[in-house]
Nucleic acid binder design. Structure first.
Length: 562
RNA sequence: UGACCCAUGGUGUAAUGGUAACACAGCAGAUUUUGGUUCUGUCGUUCCAGGUUCGAGUCCUGGUGGGUCAACCA
């Protein structure tokens, strides 16, 4: 991260509730800040994780603290090294570097020792009940649970059984280790939660060393404590886990990490749950986890989002404890804001109509100078060729234009961007009535912004020379779903019922010749159309494939829609 | 018929007992060789009822509404 926040700037910005908590503890003399980002390596990170990453790493940076990356790998049947790698890759791409890299599985030995300790204190016991019996015994949210018949086993018996569980003497599901708390507690999590289950499964890091694995609630707080995490930040749905988090730390008398919860990110027109994203991939509804329509970090990346824009977004959405749904428009605003400053402009025609300039001498070619980025003089200029035949976009011509349409129409005039004013003299159609060519004349005195008689034209349209244009595949992406709040669907409808059939349109576009040499990973603004990213996965030497990151704001579209 | 969390413009986020503000979105205008950018203006907000207080978005009580919890997932 290059942007350093000066103390003065930091002072002007209001604090979020986590910063307030931290500053309150600093005021009391506890100055150390150590956070952690703790993903389970069972899938790809999405924009919601990006918020959490920016929060955890951002807080550490702001208060001169540290932030660890810790993989919460306590469930071997769901976790894979592939995900570990992609998660590290995404965090680095976002621009963050972890201070410590750990795995919950690093702590399996310690965790087990602590489990024996709790058994010895009479705070944990081995339960022989089946999964079904345990479920029954737990009661419901409105009725208390009942004690297990195995709850009062002696310490010696529990210890013996636990060691035999660890030694592999029992089959999966035959026994569990439970904390002995209170089967009537109003908080379901405290009704003798399971600490260990038997799982004869290969772990991606510890292999077959273990056949018992700790549950999240038993492992998480202790892992924080081992790493001396001061602020363990997680999402709201874990708030009812906090008493249990504290219970284990208190009983074990280990370093008191504390948990704080914030509201997770929701986006309009977007699903975020791992289950649904996985289903989109598995059913082939998208092309993979990094499909540019996916809200995954790797998807945004392939869409052409910049790390800066994602960080700016995370900053702007804020942090609080109430449920929220952020307008997708804010994310788009953030990337436009960034790309407007940095992306060079080029011209491309997505849906061409051929224009013949009848008074332009056959074979004549004129070099036209174009500004690369009006926001950045250092970006310089380039030349494109003006010729007798050019392509313009179909959207820029209407045979029967409505009021306020100031693009090209029969008898009307428009300026070709950076070039001459042309007038439409004749419309050529094919047998089906489709416009196939416009025959126009140009004003030779209109180069450089003027005109023969000082008249101004309102419309300026982009174009490419038909005689030396290159072509490229361009993918026009749109939102994946049609429903604004995908969290509240109509009665009896599934989220897949709201898939946007037009979320991807692929076209072959005419592009400036120079654009054919575009390098994978480069970003451009196609003038008047949007920002485009050269897909690193699909492009090859001299054959770029462009992904539309986002359209430009289009105030004409609003007028036209009305 | 439980426990816990939450409630401020359309969407977010501030205001820390003392003039309800900022951003995005919307609308209107100016500038503009991108209907882009930029600039200006504008619309619009404290869930309800009581209470405490000189004064309540903020504190208290009670409602209402939303969320979370009954995996050997995290």
């Amino acid at each position: 991260m290059s942007d350093t926040v000066t103390p003065a700037q930091a002072e002007e910005k209001p604090l979020n509730f986590l910063e307030e908590i931290i500053e309150a503890s600093i005021a009391k003399g506890e100055t150390r800040v150590h956070t952690r980002f703790p993903p389970e390596p069972n899938g790809y990170l999405h924009i919601g994780h990006a918020k959490s990453i920016c929060l955890n790493f951002g807080l550490a940076k702001k208060y001169n603290g540290k932030c660890n990356l810790r993989f919460d790998d306590t469930n071997p049947v769901k976790e894979e090294t592939e995900y570990v790698d992609s998660i590290m890759d995404d965090i680095r791409w976002l621009g963050f570097r972890w201070d410590g890299l750990f795995y919950a599985s690093d702590y399996f030995d310690t965790l087990y020792l602590w489990a024996e300790e709790l058994v010895k204190k009479g705070k944990a016991y081995v339960d022989d009940q089946t999964q079904e019996q345990i479920r029954q015994g737990r009661g419901t949210v409105t009725s208390p649970g009942a004690n297990s018949p195995f709850r009062d086993r002696s310490v010696d018996e529990n210890l013996n059984l636990l060691r035999r569980m660890k030694a592999g003497e029992f089959a999966d599901g035959e026994k569990v280790l439970r904390a002995k708390i209170d089967m009537t507690h109003p908080n379901m999590l405290l009704r003798d939660p399971i600490m260990y289950r038997i799982l004869h499964a290969e772990h991606h890091r510890t292999g077959d060393k273990w056949c018992i694995y700790p549950m999240y609630d038993y492992a998480h707080g202790e892992s924080d404590s081992i790493e001396k995490i001061t602020h363990s930040i997680c999402t709201l749905e874990f708030d009812i886990h906090r008493p249990l988090y504290d219970w284990f730390i208190n009983e074990l008398e280990i370093f008191p990490s504390h948990q704080y919860e914030f509201a997770r990110l929701n986006l309009t027109y977007t699903v975020m749950s791992k289950r649904r994203l996985l289903q989109l991939v598995q059913q082939g509804l998208v092309e993979g986890w990094d499909d540019p329509r996916m809200p995954t970090i790797c998807g945004l990346r392939r869409r052409g989002y910049t790390p800066e824009s994602v960080r700016a977004f995370a900053e702007r959405v804020g942090v609080a404890k109430r449920d929220n749904i952020i307008d997708l428009g804010l994310l788009e605003y953030c990337v436009r804001e960034d790309l407007n400053r940095t992306a060079q402009r080029r011209m491309a025609v997505l849906d061409p109509i051929k224009v013949t300039i009848t008074n332009w001498p056959e074979g004549n070619k004129e070099a036209i100078r174009c500004v690369n980025n009006p926001e950045d003089p250092e970006a310089g200029t380039r030349e494109v060729a003006m010729t007798r035949q050019v392509y313009i976009d179909r959207d820029d011509f209407m045979e029967d234009p409505p009021k306020k349409y100031f693009r090209l129409s029969p008898g009307g005039e428009v300026r070709l961007r950076y070039s001459y004013i042309i007038k439409c003299d004749e419309v050529v159609k094919d047998a089906s009535g489709k416009v196939v060519e416009l025959r126009c004349s140009y004003d030779p005195a209109s180069g450089g912004g003027g005109s023969s008689d000082g008249r101004k034209v309102k419309g300026i349209i982009h174009w490419v020379s038909a005689e030396n244009a290159a072509t490229a595949q361009v993918r026009l992406y749109d939102r994946l779903f049609t429903q604004e709040d995908m969290g509240s669907l109509d009665e009896g409808k599934d989220y897949l019922d709201y898939l946007n059939p037009d979320s991807l349109r692929t076209v072959t576009a005419y592009i400036e010749p120079a654009l054919a040499e575009a390098e994978p990973g480069q970003r451009f603004q196609f003038e008047r159309l949007g920002y485009f990213f050269v897909d690193p996965k699909e492009s090859s030497e001299g054959k770029p494939v462009f992904n539309r990151t986002v359209t430009l704001k289009d105030s004409w579209a609003k007028i036209a829609a009305k």
